[in-house]
């Protein structure tokens, strides 16, 4: 599903990935660990093709970084759910509207948008927050909304970039448990974190970035 073949990429600050080769299969839960600045975010950016490798090829589903056309990048991103440390929610829209955006982007009909968003709200236990603005939610709730927005489009994989970075321990645990639940239902999860203690005993596959080398 995701494959890195001899990928090298230098990113801001001089650090980089050197000659990384590995595969991630559907339904896996993979944790990318490494200190701040090691390149975890850039690693994820390579997957959703916000940046491209200088050498080698990144493959996601049927898309390959060396062949993809600019107009196909949105199609790739519709297959990938993304969750960010700072939530990246639209502050002037309700929870419902934030979660609905990926469906509108895909041209889903209004009735189905309503049904799908209601489903995911219920699944993640935030139905009572549907009309709230992000500013009216706690950090943990905002991250769950972000997770709902990623999940609503039924992605192949969820990329979570430090999803617990701004959360207290209880909220962090809640988000991790939700990611595990989503993973149990068949969606692959690729989570970047520097908080090893939070994830170390949970049975994930770990990848570590050390001096540009991706150790799997």
């Amino acid at each position: 599903m995701i494959s890195f073949k001899n990928v090298s990429c230098t990113f801001e600050g001089g650090a980089g990935i050197e000659n990384a080769t590995f595969d991630i299969e559907p339904g896996e839960f993979v944790c990318i660990i490494g200190p701040t600045g090691a390149g975890k975010t850039t690693f994820l950016k390579l997957i959703y093709m916000d940046i491209f490798p200088e050498e080698g090829t990144v493959g996601v589903d049927k898309y390959r970084s060396d062949k993809i056309k600019k107009r196909s990048i949105p199609m790739l991103r519709r297959r990938v759910g993304m969750v960010f440390q700072d939530f990246e929610l639209l502050k002037d829209r309700s929870v419902f509207d934030n979660i609905a955006i990926p469906l509108h982007v895909q041209g889903v009909g209004m009735k189905m948008v309503k049904d799908e968003v209601e489903n995911v709200l219920e699944r993640l236990g935030i139905s009572d927050r549907r009309d709230h603005l992000p500013s009216q939610l706690s950090g943990g709730e905002q991250q769950i909304v972000s997770l709902a927005r990623a999940l609503v489009k039924d992605p192949l994989v969820i990329l979570a970039d430090e999803p617990t970075g701004n959360l207290d321990p209880a909220a962090s645990l809640k988000v991790i448990e939700l990611l595990e639940e989503i993973n149990r239902d068949g969606t692959a999860v690729l989570m970047a974190t520097h908080n090893f203690s939070l994830v170390k005993d949970r049975g994930y596959r770990f990848m570590q970035i050390v001096d540009g080398e991706v150790q799997t």
Partner: peptide
Amino acid sequence: RDLIRILKLVGAT
């Protein structure tokens, strides 16, 4: 510009 970036991230053309 944040709106544009988020729309692009969720797959908007």
